[in-house]
Design a protein around this nucleic acid. Structure first.
Lengths: 130, 130
DNA sequence: TTTTTAAGATTACATGTGTAATCTTTTCTG
DNA sequence: CAGAAAAGATTACACATGTAATCTTAAAAA
């Protein structure tokens, strides 16, 4: 069954499942359980429940392969994270990213690599907006 | 009653209340309701409930002034947003801010001002980490 | 072929959350 | 002073979420 308009929010636990699914798919529920168990000691029944909820919410779908299901995400990780980031920044920082980055900076959570990447982004941006 | 270790998560609705409280405090519940109503059509009973929950969670406290309460936050907005941002970025972007900013950039959500601020942050950072 | 197993479906259940309504008590108002 | 209004406390209630256990069914094993 497919759902063309993914709705509803994805809960924290559901996100963890989606997260490992994004890493590599299609995947069976056992695959997913196994990957999750590298990090979270979740019961396989729990993971199945979360998968079902994701399917019901229209963000994951599956194809049947014998008696197992092969799950795959219906939304791209980048689209999801972009949307979430936008809403997060809008809620907590009035839509401005700089203050968020400032928090990282004054917390010593910025690495040289982060800074290099930010500089590259800025250079790129300036080329497009001269 | 005061609670020295603010625990528990702040829900979305609770955050909205805290958000306007941060804007100016101490404030009575009516003040808060009024400010919120600039944006959200929330019933005053609803706001009271949210305030109570914030108090119970130890993130807001109050002093009695006659029969009204004067509410004030027990945590600073900056501390809260910093913590939330860290956990958000860690969950969705493996802890790296740059990819988050990249999402904004390629979505045309970066303004000249954002870029200026980011450049200033970077300059600052480089001075501290030469 | 009978039995065991394992996949997914269904059910469970406590706690959180959104969204108030009602209750209690204390001050205004007339 | 009696009644109305208003502040906070308590109660309500449906839906979401975390976290599974049980049920059903089909496939694999003996």
């Amino acid at each position: 069954m497919s759902n063309d308009n993914p709705k509803a929010d994805i809960s924290n636990a559901e996100f963890e499942v989606l997260d490992v699914l994004w890493d590599d798919y299609p995947a069976t529920s056992s695959d997913i359980v196994e990957r999750l168990n590298q990090k979270k000691p979740w019961h396989d029944k729990t993971v199945k429940t979360l998968l079902s909820r994701l399917v019901k919410k229209g963000v994951v779908d599956f194809d049947k392969a014998q008696r197992q299901y092969l799950y795959r995400p219906l939304i791209a990780r980048e689209d999801y994270t972009k949307k979430e980031a936008t809403s997060f920044v809008s809620r907590l920082f009035k839509g401005k990213v700089a203050p968020l980055v400032a928090g990282f900076a004054n917390q010593n959570s910025l690495s040289q690599q982060d800074v290099d990447e930010l500089k590259a982004l800025i250079k790129q941006w300036e080329q497009n907006n001269d």
